[in-house]
């Protein structure tokens, strides 16, 4: 019985994806792709923030890294997307491994400020290093992946639906990785670090190594997101990778969905991407609503949407207890 409930969310997810594809509506399909992108970012952030408890506010830097790298490979060197998909996460991970040990020496607030600064530095660089990044004008001419597969089973990346399938495949792969990772010793140790770093260290674990690994994973996954973004939209500029446009939103998606949960990123992303689209919100209104939602969720549901089930059932139990106590007295 337990097994069945475990598979249910996956089935729902697949069904939802199939349904979106079936509509054939370019707009819906694109929105669904954006939802997946945000879920990917939140998923990556989960490793360093949700499990290890470190406030990485500079994920946009890695998101941008992936995107600009993909743009360079595709527009400047005419390489297929797969190259960027392999190289950029490695680059993101490598950079994280290099700066990680230094950055992770700081605690909570300092780390948050440091990653914030990192994000802003990268934003500034993308805006100013015109020769490489095209400055505020950005880079265009990124081509979609071509035909993949053989004959009847082929997917044409140039079409919206084709791109959707490719994105969905990568997204599902990452979700599976996340699901497996959740049960691994690695994540268990990260959780130990979150609850008591010193204690974990005294148990013999080199906490720095684990933290850097989590930081690197977050960076790598965000880079994958960036590559996808570049090939979906086919044009990039510094704007989508700033703190407000990327790091903050990924943060809200994860916080609202539920830090440290598996389905949190998906739930958060669906709500926070879908709702603004349905309501056709102006980007500034959208940001304002994000801020308000974050405020409300933090106060009412400190553990995010994914915990709602737990919170509701805990409340139900508490009131049932109170009722039985009344009956007894």
């Amino acid at each position: 019985m337990h097994r069945l409930t475990a598979f249910l969310p996956w089935l729902l997810l697949l069904a939802a994806m199939a349904a979106v594809l079936a509509t054939g509506n370019g707009y819906y399909v694109t929105v669904a792709m954006l939802m997946m992108l945000w879920a990917i970012l939140a998923l990556g952030l989960n490793f360093i923030l949700g499990y290890a408890g470190y406030f990485h506010l500079g994920l946009g830097a890695f998101y941008g890294l992936g995107a600009y790298g993909a743009a360079a490979f595709s527009a400047s060197y005419q390489m297929p997307m797969i190259v960027a998909l392999l190289v950029m996460p490695a680059a993101g991970a490598l950079i994280s491994v290099v700066i990680g040990p230094l950055m992770l020496r700081t605690r909570d607030l300092h780390f948050a400020v440091a990653t914030l600064a990192l994000g802003m530095i990268v934003s500034d660089v993308t805006n100013n290093w015109v020769a490489v990044t095209g400055g505020p004008m950005g880079m265009g001419g990124i081509s979609r992946p071509g035909q993949i597969g053989i004959g009847a089973l082929s997917i044409d990346g140039a079409t919206t639906s084709g791109m959707f399938i490719i994105t969905a495949a990568i997204f599902l792969a990452l979700m599976i990785v996340a699901a497996i990772a959740r049960r691994s010793d690695f994540v268990l140790i990260l959780r130990g670090i979150k609850s008591d770093d010193m204690m974990t260290r005294s148990l013999g674990f080199s906490t720095t190594r684990y933290k850097v690994a989590a930081f690197a994973i977050a960076g790598a996954i965000a880079s994958v997101g960036g590559v996808l973004y570049a090939h979906i939209v086919q044009y990039i500029s510094p704007e989508p990778f700033t703190f407000f446009a990327a790091s903050f939103q990924a943060f809200v998606v994860l916080a609202v969905g539920g830090l440290g949960s598996l389905w949190g990123p998906v739930l958060g992303s669906v709500l926070l991407t879908g709702l603004p689209e349905i309501l056709e919100m102006d980007p500034h209104v959208k940001l304002l609503v994000y801020g308000a939602v974050l405020l409300i969720v933090t106060i009412v549901l400190p553990r995010g949407l994914a915990s709602m089930g737990r919170v509701l059932s805990a409340r139900a139990r508490a009131s049932a207890n109170a009722k039985t106590k009344e009956k007894q007295t």
Binding site: D108, L109, H284, V285, L287, L288, G291, L295, I299, P302
Partner: peptide, 27 residues
Amino acid sequence: RLSRYPEVALLIVSLALVVLISSAAVM
């Protein structure tokens, strides 16, 4: 009102305030 909440939550709340106020200001 949030004095009994963990520092984590206070950080998030202040970020939310930044976004709220600056978005309103831009509008």
